[in-house]
């Protein structure tokens, strides 16, 4: 059951990554590798959150780190810089529902200013959701970028022929 869940999660993440990647005009040869990275990263995050009790921010960081390392490894063969592979692969991990709730609770807060409690509940929700969204996005970017610093020489010569 766990395996099916993870495979399905990976599959949807792969489709999402290819589609969101397509907006930024990636090389066709990179699409299968983007899909693979996105599937591996998202399924890993899913597994960490569901079965290892990790929170969304640290699970995202670990998944992004894996995607970053993977892009270092997979990019060399098709002469693509790391960013071309890992940016589309990270997109399915954007915390969309938290971002949405941030906007929604802000609106509800502003709409309930004249109520007795002044919409304190909504303000609380706003901060909670905004904090989660921002930390996840920052950690996603940081995690995937880390391998560039560790493996500088290799990361800088990904598109070299020899």
């Amino acid at each position: 059951m766990i395996v099916t869940d993870m495979l399905l999660d990976g599959l949807f993440a792969a489709v999402a990554a290819i589609g969101f990647g397509a907006i930024s005009d990636p090389p066709m040869r990179a699409l299968p590798r983007i899909a693979l990275l996105a599937a591996a990263g998202h399924a890993l995050r899913f597994c960490l959150m569901r079965h290892a009790g990790a929170d969304i921010a640290s699970a995202s960081f670990v998944a992004a780190l894996v995607i970053g390392m993977g892009s270092l490894w997979l990019g060399r063969g098709i002469r693509c810089p790391m960013t071309c592979l890992y940016i589309p692969a990270l997109l399915p991990m954007v915390p969309g529902v938290y971002a949405y709730r941030t906007v929604f609770s802000l609106i509800m807060f502003l709409q309930s200013l004249d109520r007795a409690d002044g919409g304190v509940r909504y303000m609380q929700q706003f901060f909670l959701n905004a904090t989660v969204s921002l930390s996840v996005i920052a950690l996603l970017a940081a995690g995937a970028t880390l391998p560039i610093f560790v493996f500088r020489r290799r990361a800088f010569s990904m598109t070299r022929r020899k």
């Binding site: 969101f20 940016i87 997109l91 954007v94 969309g96 529902v97 971002a99 996603l140 970017a141 970028t145």
Partner: peptide
């Protein structure tokens, strides 16, 4: 459904490039 519908617009490239 409502939460997901505008997410195709998220500017992922400038966000990550900014951090880099």
């Amino acid at each position: 459904a409502l939460a997901t519908s505008p997410l195709f617009l998220v500017p992922g490239v400038p966000l990550i490039n900014g951090v880099i």
